[in-house]
Simulated assay, not measured.
Amino acid sequence: MLFCDIDGVISLWGWQPDTRPPGVWTAVDGIPHFLSTRAAEHLLELSQLYELVWCSGWEEKADEHLPRLLGVPAGRPHLHFAGRDRAAVSARAHWKLEAIDAYAGGRPLAWVDDALTAACWDWARARAAPTLLVPTEPARGLDADHAARLRSFAHAA
């Protein structure tokens, strides 16, 4: 499985004016987003190797907007974070871990996110199933190097 965050992975920000990556501007619920077409191309390819699961606070909005705007596959599941108070999560945890654990069970997984914490790395090392964490930078998002690591992991897992 490939758990994919959106903000900082597909929806980018923070690049220098002369280094804007390829992408499209859009608004989701009135909030402007710059969506990386390069990240979308990588996800389209990776969806042949992985079960793609949206792992974002966007929840169902991911499947409502991204397939139409970027051509990524429609009908992909998303994690639900209802009832998980992000502010109440301790420094030893990450607000997404409980939902990822519940969905993945003991299956191998990769997780792409721009906000991985020490708790995420500890969790990944402790899992019995193969687990790959792929950190991104919000100005670049999912790039060719990340996609290559994800392909290698999928073939090895």
Rank of each mutant, 00 (worst) to 15 (best):
M1A: 08
L2E: 13
D5V: 06
D7N: 09
G8A: 13
G8F: 01
V9T: 07
S11W: 10
L12Q: 05
L12R: 05
W13H: 14
W15D: 10
W15Q: 10
P17Q: 09
D18P: 02
P21R: 06
P22L: 10
P22T: 02
A27T: 08
A27G: 00
V28D: 03
F34C: 12
L35G: 07
L35S: 06
T37V: 15
R38W: 01
A39Q: 04
L44F: 01
L46H: 14
L46G: 03
Y50L: 10
Y50I: 12
W54P: 11
C55Q: 14
C55F: 12
S56I: 07
W58T: 01
W58Q: 00
E59F: 04
E60Q: 13
D63A: 04
D63Q: 00
E64L: 08
P67E: 00
R68L: 13
L69A: 03
L70P: 13
G71K: 12
V72K: 04
L79H: 14
H80M: 15
R84M: 12
A91N: 04
A91R: 12
R92W: 10
R92E: 15
A93V: 11
D101V: 04
A102F: 03
Y103R: 02
Y103V: 02
R107A: 15
L109M: 14
W111M: 12
W111A: 01
V112G: 05
D113E: 08
D114G: 03
D114N: 05
L116C: 03
T117V: 09
A118L: 12
A118Y: 03
A119T: 11
A119R: 05
W123I: 07
A126C: 07
A128I: 01
L133A: 02
P135T: 13
T136G: 03
P138D: 11
A139R: 02
G141K: 10
G141L: 04
L142K: 15
D143T: 02
D145M: 02
L150E: 08
R151S: 09
F153L: 02
H155E: 15
